[in-house]
Design a protein around this nucleic acid. Structure first.
Lengths: 346, 346
DNA sequence: ATGAAAGCGCTAACAC
DNA sequence: GTGTTAGCGCTTTCAT
């Protein structure tokens, strides 16, 4: 029975109860040194009796480490990020870390604010950045950072400095979709591009389409969400020159486009093929089910966390190879049957 | 320019740079006392110059508070929880708190473990518990807890002790669905029940159906997810005595049932009506769109956070009234046309 | 208006 | 093996 006292029990209480010094208790609790069975028993008993839990803040003040990592995603509601979070969480837990998770609501100012409050509390951060590379690089000098996405062009400019960047190759993703659509005989592709966050996919797509003389129209949206897709659909589908394929930055946007297209009376894939990115769980459940590129969201989270924790702990392991994106062909896309469809091959 | 030094700048560095004592800096940084304009200016300048940020851990050791709240949800991938998190996050940010978020993966043992690691780090917790009430009550004695769902029976037993419990009324939710189906002439309802977490909805449903002599079969699942729905669908739909309505614990399960039903060749709502709970964003996008009960997930998060922070800060505000659940009738449900459908008017 | 001193709960040298 | 000592970075009386 713990006698009346303010707050929770401290090391001192345990030390008094078990008749040893505070440092002995500390060493036993932390398994940092061994003692005689008798003493260990007494201390363990006192710990159990009092319900002692170490104060992690006090610990952090001394060690300078918090065994906590921060995660900043743009939108927890996006299953891509939710899965990434789950991946991070499982690794963190297995390695004895706690996760401080925040949602920037797709707002870069808020993202910066969140990074600022998180940094003094964590040992490292996993970020799905919407912020400009230079700003992110600034933060990367304060604490180890692991970033999703592989911004090849930015990395080339070394703008990201120390940060680990890691994710499925965006260029390759775009390219896969481009090749697939080209081989399906499509002639006019519209891409729904996420403003300021997504150049690689677009470049990959254009690279694959360009060689085949296929037209690629780019539409922009700032919202990589269902609503973003809904809102962009009008402009993409109701113009005079309707595309025979629509590709979106992610699956959520594709779902929005699909819903809105149905409202306008379009039928997919009869009127146009629709391709998303991520393969979120809902993608397989729509009708028609969505053709998409699987980006292995959970796995990316796992690899980011492993890499970050290795870095934090000074482990010098080889960086893992990111998964290869995989095209999941489903019912929302179909080959075009024009008079003489030129079938491209690579 | 900060000269070479280990770690980030501390109060001491600021004090030295501005030629005042540490306590003066502390008071200025915390706005806890005013000083001469001259001193304030010098200190602010030094803070900016050195890029000083207070060490939140050191602060917490002294004050015993961390301006951090913990959130434990069963599954971030469930949009219901993702929205709740967003609600919590917006309030927390507005009131100057950071959120420590964790995902228990629908596992009560893990939930207990997470609560244990979170409690010493936070000022209070928001939990969507799968854990038994007694265990939760145990944790509630250590730190303020705010719980989703309103477990009327448990509250009656006072098992939850100090915890604030808060959410859309489950009994009422079940009742609304029951009345709606009864009025639609349904005669045999199957309910997909979430084992151990959901008695109120079932009781409300049964209460509404019982009076009308409508049969209610209960199926159990431990997974309130798309997969849970997929897996349960077989048992619910392929028995000899097929229901004319299926109600699920939540929308994710309903999506699973819908997908699996389609695979078996059933057509909804022709073969049976389907009703979910939550009104997640995807519910309106399926075909047919899902009839469901809106539970105002985000709003619940907001109210939970407000209530918890009020409690933490000793503010004695009146507890807000939880939103009333609202039935969203969509295409997945339709009246039955039997010879002489008895139309209940409960 | 400013500062000196004590100490929050804990760890880490270094003694013995 | 065990204890002593000295802090970590900060807040908080209490003097001046």
């Amino acid at each position: 029975m713990k006698s009346a006292s303010a707050g929770p029990p401290t090391l001192r209480h345990v030390a008094q109860a078990s008749q040893v010094s505070e440092s002995t208790v500390s060493k036993i609790v932390n398994r940092t040194k061994r003692f005689s069975p008798e003493v260990e028993r007494r201390v363990q008993a006192a710990v159990a009796e009092l319900g002692y839990t170490p104060n992690p803040h006090a610990r952090s003040v001394i060690t300078g480490r918090s065994r906590t990592i921060g995660v900043v995603v743009a939108d927890v509601l996006n299953p891509h990020f939710a899965l990434l979070i789950k991946g991070v969480g499982s690794v963190a837990r297995a390695r004895g870390y706690t996760v401080l998770l925040t949602d920037s609501d797709e707002d870069s100012d808020l993202e910066a604010e969140l990074l600022g409050t998180l940094i003094p509390r964590v040992d490292g951060l996993i970020v799905a950045p919407r912020l400009e590379a230079q700003v992110v690089a600034q933060f990367a000098r304060l604490k180890p950072l692991a970033l999703t996405a592989r911004p090849s062009d930015l990395a080339r400019r070394q703008a990201l400095g120390e940060a680990l960047t890691f994710g499925v190759d965006g260029f390759q993703t775009g390219q896969m979709i481009g090749h697939y659509l080209a081989q399906g005989g499509h002639r006019h592709v519209s891409y729904l591009h996420l403003a300021q966050a997504d150049d690689d996919r677009l470049r990959g797509l254009e690279a694959a389409l360009g060689g085949q003389g296929i037209r690629c129209t780019v539409h922009r949206s700032a919202e990589p969400s269902i609503e973003g897709g809904l809102r962009a659909a009008t402009a993409m589908l109701l113009g005079e020159d309707r595309p025979d394929a629509v590709v979106t930055y992610n699956d959520l946007m594709a779902l929005g486009v699909l819903a809105e297209a149905r409202k306008f009376g379009f039928e997919v894939p009869r009127d146009f093929s629709l391709v998303g990115v991520d393969d979120i769980p809902y993608a397989a459940l729509t009708s028609p089910p969505l053709t998409t590129v699987r980006t292995y969201s959970r796995e990316i989270g796992v690899q980011l966390a492993e890499a970050l924790l290795d870095r934090i702990e000074g482990v010098d392991r080889l960086a893992p190879t990111p998964p290869t994106p995989q095209l999941m062909v489903r019912g929302s896309s179909a080959p075009r049957q024009y008079e003489a469809a030129p079938v491209g091959r690579g």
